[in-house]
């Protein structure tokens, strides 16, 4: 079975503008991963084709790209998830600077993640044993802790597209992870960071992040919990 990938390419050393190149590839069946097809294009047709990947099963978060206009992981998207009768359009994640081909500069994304103090702060001396936490309280964190920092959510958000300073769903999700951890003492500092027009309030519940998240995290729900917390703190 032949499928066509229409891949956006851009080499900063040669090109002034990104352009599209079509690769006609051989797919075994409709269960083939888009990542396998990208590999085929690179290894058999054009070695200059450049993209990130590592674990190849949706755990490491390296290969977030835009497939037919929608952010997904190349390794978790199979041919049957898209219309492969027509050329499949492959582009880098939107709204981040393009380094080369499908690779974007994620340093801004990481800075936003670091801005919410993504680590447990507990000012009391650690006990000899674990800090106790009920399983219900622990499980409240699990959905947010699934995040693999692939960037699909933040770069799918229209608020991010128009405001590069918007901290974005991924960082807000991380803020939730610690604000609602019963062992944490720094919720207030984190809430200060996100209680700004460029923080949680820039979220307009569009749900693009939820649609994009490859780990099926309902990010908007988590942000809504943060907003409620912010509002309660204010009142």
């Amino acid at each position: 079975m032949k499928v066509t990938l229409r891949i956006q390419k851009y080499n900063p050393e040669k090109d002034s503008e990104p352009y599209y190149q079509e690769f006609v590839l051989e797919a075994g069946d409709e269960k083939e991963r888009i990542l396998d097809l990208l590999h085929q294009a690179k290894w058999k047709h054009d070695g200059t084709l450049t993209f990130r990947r590592s674990c190849a099963h949706g755990v490491c978060g390296s290969d977030g790209i835009r497939i037919n206009g929608r952010n997904r992981l190349a390794c978790s998207t199979l041919l049957r998830d898209v219309n492969y009768k027509k050329p499949i359009v492959i582009e880098p994640l939107p709204s981040l600077p393009i380094v080369k081909d499908l690779i974007v500069d994620m340093s801004d994304f990481y800075k936003k993640y670091e801005a919410v103090k993504p680590y447990l702060v507990n000012n009391s001396p650690p006990p000899e044993h674990e800090r106790l936490q009920s399983n219900e309280d622990a499980e409240k964190l699990f959905e947010s802790a699934k995040c693999i920092l692939c960037g699909c959510c933040t770069t799918s958000c229209p608020s991010s597209w128009s405001d590069e300073n918007y901290i974005g769903p991924a960082a807000l999700l991380k803020a939730y992870r610690f604000v609602f951890d019963t062992r944490d003492d720094a919720a207030d500092e984190r809430l200060d960071v996100i209680d700004t027009p460029d923080g949680a309030w820039r979220c307009h519940t569009i749900f693009n992040c939820v649609e994009a998240c490859p780990k099926e995290i309902n990010i908007t729900w988590h942000i809504s919990q943060l907003k409620k917390q912010l509002a309660q703190r204010e009142m």
Binding site: P97, P158, E211
Partner: peptide, 24 residues
């Protein structure tokens, strides 16, 4: 020099829209 991203309007027009994006 990384290529700066496309403008918000173009991205909005190009990006996949589900019922939630239309609602917004």
């Amino acid at each position: 020099q990384p290529k700066p991203p496309e403008g918000w309007l173009k991205t909005n027009l190009k990006y996949y829209k589900h019922s939630g994006s239309w609602a917004w």
